[in-house]
């Protein structure tokens, strides 16, 4: 199959409906036909995820639809990443993400990580019950653009403040943005603890991360 006979809009459709197998097949065929990988990402895949986000915001899609679209996106992206790296294409940002100390909840944080990765961010996922020191160490080590903090409980969201204080103390992390989320967290809480941003959902976190890095 050549580039001219490939219907790349099918990649857009596959990601939009979360058909990971179809997305993978189309990308494999496109690679075999020497299609520009950047064209696939910017022309089909990111627009598809943008549409997924739009549908989520409009109440047409819900978390499961987001998850399967993100999975299709990640699978397709994994095939393209070696080609993109060989061309010197960098991720649009590097995010260190984790659930704060004392909190064992993984799912919400995982969903945000998945959506950010699908949007082209490099993700360093520290897991759950992560100390402030560990957030700082990994952010320094990876030269993170963003530190993303999750907490599911009113009792553990207080740890968010400790991480923000620890990150702000480090000169080398001056440009690093901090975003927070989780069931009990609000914009007012984010403002009160000096976070750079807050999102109530995974899709919003992608928009927020993009905004912060383009500012």
């Amino acid at each position: 199959m050549t580039e001219s006979t490939l219907d790349l809009t099918k990649l857009y459709e596959a990601i939009l409906i979360g058909d990971a197998s179809a997305a993978k097949e189309i990308v494999e065929a496109a690679i075999a036909a020497a299609v520009d990988p950047q064209l696939l990402v910017t022309g089909q895949m990111i627009p598809a995820m943008d549409e997924v986000g739009r549908r989520f915001e409009a109440g047409e899609y819900f978390v499961p639809e987001l998850l399967i679209a993100g999975r299709a996106m990640k699978g397709a992206l994994a095939l393209l990443q070696p080609l993109l790296a060989a061309r010197g294409v960098e991720p649009i940002g590097r995010v260190v993400i984790g659930t704060v100390k004392g909190d064992m909840h993984d799912i919400g944080k995982g969903l945000v990580a998945s959506m950010l990765e699908g949007a082209g961010f490099e993700i360093i996922d520290l897991g759950v019950d992560v100390s402030a020191d560990k957030f700082v160490a990994r952010a320094l080590e990876t030269k993170a653009d963003i530190v993303a903090l999750s907490a599911l409980l009113t009792t553990t969201m207080l740890s968010i403040k400790d991480v923000i204080a620890a990150v702000r103390k480090i000169d080398a992390l001056n440009g690093c943005k901090i975003i927070i989320g989780g069931a009990p967290v609000t914009q007012q809480y984010a403002d009160s603890v000096g976070a750079d941003g807050y999102s109530s959902n995974a899709n919003g976190a992608v928009t927020l991360a993009r905004q912060l890095l383009s500012a």
């Binding site: 499961p64 998850l67 399967i68 999975r71 799912i107 969903l111």
Partner: peptide, 18 residues
């Protein structure tokens, strides 16, 4: 099982199990 699915990057399965 939810943790196993999460490790295998089956986010949807993990979320439903949770």
């Amino acid at each position: 099982l939810a943790s196993k699915l999460l490790r295998e990057q089956d986010d949807l399965g993990a979320m439903v199990l949770n």
